[in-house]
Nucleic acid binder design. Structure first.
Lengths: 154, 154
DNA sequence: CGTCGTAACTACCGGGATGTGATCCCGTAC
DNA sequence: GTACGGGATCACATCCCGGTAGTTACGACG
């Protein structure tokens, strides 16, 4: 029995995340998210993204939809990339000025607001990952039977 | 005894808020924040901003510093403008997708995070107004003895 | 080998936002 | 009336971002 597909080609990624190919291309070329399975090597080759890449892309898309600039999203993803091993399902990615951090309770956020000096951008990662997984399942035929590793691991 | 100055000219506003004249000009011309005391009428005239204008400008600046786009800030300010009469010192301006709202407790924010679908941008208005007032006091000579109405009212 | 489909790549363009330098215009002082 | 300072306005340039369309190149197929 063939193993589930765990890599995704560019156009599939666009469909799953809800972005244009141009955005994906620009984000790859400017080193925001390069495909970690297989990067492109010129015309005719293909980019292959991992599930983790998709999580990052999904977070970026959520931030952009919320009105956060691409520049700020870049910084946040750099931080997230260093903490992907942690339990994301219950974490919140918090952007505070140029810093990012993960919080795991509402109290932590309230505390940040009280001690902070203005603005927080908060990404609840649970819902983001859930929506990603749901989209992967819904588009499974189109994505060649791709199986969300997080869902499978649970 | 002369009454305290309660309006601010363009360059003073730039100094207080920490933005360039170009930004102030662009924001006025594009109807983000027009001076409510006296708008410009061509070269040689002067814009005069009220304290409320300064609060709005300060919130915008805080949002931009946090990486929020000007477009998203526009929406937020439209909402804030309709609720300025409320107790801002203890309120949090929360941006959720295209909607904005004011919350007054950490519990409300935690609840929004649980029920929401991704990203919140939160402006703690207390610290923003406090920093504005502190800057006005510190620059009082430059701002011709301007007195922060909120501080005076408290 | 030629053709085709697919995806990557490239170039141009436009919109948003802002920097920079120059010019315009008003109010004030002499 | 002239000069000046301050602020508004204008024009051009730059950067970021991404849309659009055309070109390039690879692998599959006959």
């Amino acid at each position: 029995m063939s193993s589930p597909v765990t890599s995704f080609r560019g156009p599939q990624v666009c469909k799953v995340i809800g972005i244009t190919y141009r955005q994906l291309d620009y984000w790859a070329r400017t080193n925001l998210v390069r495909p970690s399975v297989q990067d492109a090597a010129g015309s005719g080759t293909q980019r292959e993204y991992s599930y983790t890449d998709l999580v990052e892309l999904k977070v970026i898309k959520s931030l952009l939809d919320a009105g956060v600039s691409l520049q700020a999203a870049r910084k946040a993803i750099e931080y997230l990339r260093e903490h992907l091993g942690e339990e994301l399902g219950s974490a919140n990615l918090v952007l505070q000025c140029a810093d990012s951090l993960l919080t795991y309770s509402g109290d932590q956020i309230v505390d940040l607001l009280r001690r902070g000096q203005g603005v927080l951008n908060i990404v609840a990662l649970g819902p983001v990952v859930e929506e990603l997984d749901a989209t992967l399942v819904a588009l499974a035929p189109a994505a060649a039977g791709a199986e969300p590793p997080l869902a499978a691991a649970q």
